[in-house]
Design a protein around this nucleic acid. Structure first.
Length: 562
RNA sequence: UGACCCAUGGUGUAAUGGUAGCACUCCGGUUUUUGGUACCGUCAGUCAAGGUUCGAGUCCUUGUGGGUCAACCA
């Protein structure tokens, strides 16, 4: 059997190189380290798939570590949501850990650094410190407190810790190099005073470690071999390594930070700050609004875990800034749902059709195929009667040959049913069509095998029998932004590009009776319309569907071109 | 007037000095009781200029373009 040679992404290449250079395979360990200050989005999914995917590939453990070093922004709600999303995506973490688990260890190490003359307490305020930091093109200046005696540093740091000092009164800084070209090396802050209650440690601590001090050391405590993060942390690497130098014991695994490009998606934004803005300013209903690029939003929209994993896989990993076409995500969900979603009939904009030669009071149960892509899916029965509803846009009094649907004096096939011909229309005072009168060919029933049933008519349309039609609400979504990259315009707020028509709530839809028993989360193909799922808000008496994604619509495209 | 990173069709990626490939999108066609699916096909790319080499998308130099860095955020 010939094995297909799969190419490696640059991260996998680094790991292979490490393995070839003698790193034992058992040393491989990864982590996914979200800050619990917001919901996970499709960009995080890329990172999750990367880290957990590597875990699976190398049979290595992957920790879930909450980077909870800032009690001002972090909440339990987010911890719970993040865990739910990762599980839903289908991944299992080895250990659930928190940076706050290491507060004591971090503190002890900080003490060692002070004693070694590598850290000092700075009593200046933040703007003075910022000013002394210089700029990327000019060097910084040393703090007047930089050479404070060790004993004094120890005493002050103790005071910071015990809560005797006010927030902002002083910080602990690493003593590195105020003239470094890398701004992060200009005596970075290690600890700040925060008199806030922490979601896990309560009021135990009054000082909290900064990201740079906590992250690499946490990786080290957990013995993470490869610490993967996004490109904007590139410059932090030098500091990551410097902090590691202070505590590293050669017999242990030394974590390596490597950076990859974050995954951006067209027609949306992908930063927690901006997504939070959309939520707080009510542009959307919440983090799980189906228009949001969050995992929870996509879930509610009807996306499947595997479609998101496939997307991440095919989009790949690299180091270049990118905006991936949302069409790729949509391709994967359509591709999956085409194979798995049962077909049903639903009419979104109903107009009544009366089949004048069909006996009054008669009803038939017609056999309908559940999924032509799946032999196991079987058949269901749909009721048919003299009065039915069809889609208003599927009828025109007059139209050219390109219009394959119902028009006066022409025939069309009703899906799973008969061939009908339109004879006349009834209109109200405004000239609006209220009824279409048709006749049917009674020998043309789908699947009956008769000569008439095999007749070729160009169009086939969906319908719902009027007496059994079930009313439903259908929520139709369009992209949240009108611009491909709403946050890429200098001097313009991304919210200027919000699509005012991103949600259309349709309350007059009619669906076939088999959907009465549909449950929250169920996914269907509304034939000729698209894929829909049952929304969380849905109840037995009030069905609510979300449009996940439309079918490819070459008719609409052709119409649009005119 | 700095440092660092990046540059392959419209988009996302592969080619590890040796035939520029794959997927999405777009466009065209065949099949079709979903204008869906499936199938077939078309268009389309190595940022530029030098250099090294038998051979460069890949290595070197310079340039150009884009990104990142001056929170007591992560």
């Amino acid at each position: 059997m010939s094995e297909e040679k799969k190419s490696l992404n640059f991260i996998e290449q680094i790991i292979e190189d490490d393995l070839n250079n003698g790193m034992p395979k058992e040393n491989l360990r990864f982590r996914f380290p979200p800050e619990p200050n917001g919901y996970l989005h499709i960009g995080h999914a890329a990172s999750i798939c990367l880290n957990f995917g590597l875990g699976l590939k190398y049979n290595a453990p992957v920790n879930l570590r909450f980077d909870d070093t800032n009690p001002a922004k972090e909440e339990q709600e987010y911890v719970d949501a993040i865990k739910k999303d990762i599980e839903w995506l289908g991944f299992e973490w080895d250990k659930e850990l928190y940076s706050s688990d290491y507060f004591q260890q971090l503190y002890d190490w900080a003490l060692d650094m002070i004693k070694a003359g590598k850290a000092y307490v700075d009593e200046q305020n933040s703007s003075d410190i910022a000013e002394q930091k210089g700029t990327p093109t000019t060097v910084g200046k040393n703090s007047p407190y930089r050479d404070r005696p060790i004993e004094e540093n120890l005493a002050l740091f103790e005071k910071m810790k015990s809560g005797e000092l006010e927030e902002g009164s002083c910080v602990l800084r690493a003593k590195i190099d105020m003239s470094a070209t890398n701004m992060y090396m200009r005596d970075p802050v290690m600890y700040r005073i925060l008199n806030k209650s922490h979601h896990r440690t309560g009021n135990t601590w009054h000082i909290y470690p900064m990201y740079d001090w906590a992250h690499g050391e946490s990786d080290y405590v957990e013995q993470i071999s490869h610490s993967l993060c996004t490109l904007e942390f590139k410059h932090h690497r030098e500091l990551y390594d410097w902090f590691l130098d202070q505590i590293y014991q050669p017999q242990l695994v030394r974590p390596k930070q490597r950076e990859f490009a974050r995954r951006n998606l067209s027609y949306t934004v992908m930063s927690k700050r901006k997504l939070l803005e959309l939520v707080e300013e009510k542009f959307v209903a919440g983090w799980d609004d189906p228009r949001m690029p969050t995992i929870s939003g996509l879930r509610r929209r009807g996306y499947t875990p595997s479609s998101i994993r496939k997307f991440s896989e095919t989009a790949g990993i690299s180091k270049r800034d990118n905006v991936t076409d949302i069409a790729l995500l949509e391709f994967h969900i359509k591709n999956e749902l085409n194979k798995s979603a049962p077909r049903v009939m639903a009419v979104l904009d109903p107009v009544k059709v009366i089949i004048t030669n069909y006996p009054e009071g008669k009803e038939e149960l017609l056999k309908a195929e559940n999924n032509p892509e799946d032999d196991q899916a079987g058949y269901r029965e749909v009721p048919f009667s003299r009065e039915i509803y069809i889609e208003r846009e599927d009828f025109r009094e007059q139209a050219n040959k390109k219009f394959f649907r119902l028009k006066l004096d022409k025939e069309v096939r009703l899906k799973n049913a008969y061939i009908i011909k339109a004879n006349s229309v009834v209109k109200n005072e405004e000239g609006h069509i209220t009824e279409i009168h048709c006749t049917y060919d009674e020998d043309s029933l789908s699947g009956s095998g008769t000569e008439a049933s095999k007749r070729k008519v160009k169009g086939t349309i969906h319908w719902v029998a009027s007496s059994h039609a079930v009313p439903a609400e259908v929520r139709l979504y369009d992209r949240l932004f009108l611009d491909e990259a709403p946050d890429s315009h200098k001097g313009k707020d991304f919210k200027e590009f919000i699509n005012p028509n991103s949600l259309h709530i349709n309350t007059k839809a009619l669906v076939e009776p088999s959907l009465k028993t549909a449950e929250i989360g169920d996914r269907f193909q509304f034939q000729r319309l698209g894929y829909f799922n049952v929304d969380n808000d849905s109840t037995q008496n009030h069905l609510i569907f979300n449009k996940t994604v439309g079918l490819r619509d070459s008719w609409a495209k052709q119409e649009h071109k005119k």
